[in-house]
Computed example of a mutant assay.
Amino acid sequence: MMKKVIIGIFSILTLLGLISAYVIYDYVKERNIYSNIIKSNWKITLPKEYDEIYEKDEGPSFLGDGDRYHIFQYNDIKQIDSSLEWKSEKNESIEASSEEILKKLKVPKEYYPDFKNSYKYYWRIKDDNSKIYFIFDSDKKEVFVLEHFQ
């Protein structure tokens, strides 16, 4: 009889442990999606319904400086299209700055934004001269995010 009680208690504790582990995993996974990191670092809110199809950075940095690059693909571009104040005219400065970051990170050319096609962009600069660039290719439903931290 006592053995059955111990097995029952052990089973309940194991089940509670598994449920707790799943909840913690789900919470950490949600908190660590890159749009949340952008929100934390830049106070910019992006729609969370995307697939991250590429990412590259310079690796760990004690001061958090360096370059980072991500490509997000959205199924529904309406939300991303309305999330930022996109500019649509060609911008050679944005193109040159983007290419400089991509070369520094040694990103393969197939993951570069195609500046020959029409694109929209948004960028922001912080007081410490850190910069973030968003390049939106609505045909591919992709947003290219480039960050340069000082």
Score class of each variant (00 low, 15 high):
K39Y: 14
S40H: 15
N41F: 12
K43E: 15
I44Q: 06
T45R: 09
T45E: 14
L46K: 01
P47Y: 05
K48G: 14
K48E: 11
K48W: 08
E49P: 07
E49Y: 08
E49C: 06
Y50C: 06
Y50N: 05
D51N: 12
I53T: 09
I53D: 07
I53W: 08
Y54R: 08
K56Q: 13
K56I: 09
D57R: 03
E58L: 08
E58H: 10
S61L: 06
F62V: 12
F62Y: 14
F62K: 14
L63Y: 14
L63F: 15
G64Q: 04
G64S: 06
G64C: 04
D65N: 11
D65G: 12
G66H: 05
G66T: 05
G66R: 07
D67T: 13
D67P: 10
R68S: 11
R68I: 05
Y69I: 01
Y69V: 03
Y69W: 02
Y69M: 02
H70M: 03
H70Q: 05
I71W: 02
F72S: 06
F72W: 03
F72T: 05
F72I: 06
F72C: 03
F72L: 13
Q73I: 07
Q73P: 06
N75K: 15
D76L: 04
D76A: 11
D76P: 08
I77K: 08
I77S: 07
K78F: 12
K78I: 13
K78C: 11
K78Y: 12
Q79F: 00
I80H: 01
D81E: 13
D81C: 02
D81I: 00
S82L: 01
S82R: 01
S83G: 01
S83H: 02
S83V: 00
E85L: 11
E85T: 13
E85P: 09
E85M: 13
K87G: 10
K87P: 08
K87E: 11
S88K: 14
S88V: 12
S88P: 09
S88A: 13
S88F: 11
K90I: 10
K90D: 09
E92N: 12
E92W: 01
S93M: 07
I94F: 01
I94A: 00
E95A: 01
E95S: 03
E95V: 00
E95I: 00
E95Y: 00
A96Y: 09
A96S: 15
A96F: 10
S97M: 02
S97D: 05
S97Y: 00
S98T: 03
S98V: 00
S98I: 00
S98Q: 05
E99D: 10
E99V: 01
E99T: 06
E100S: 10
E100F: 02
L102T: 04
L102R: 08
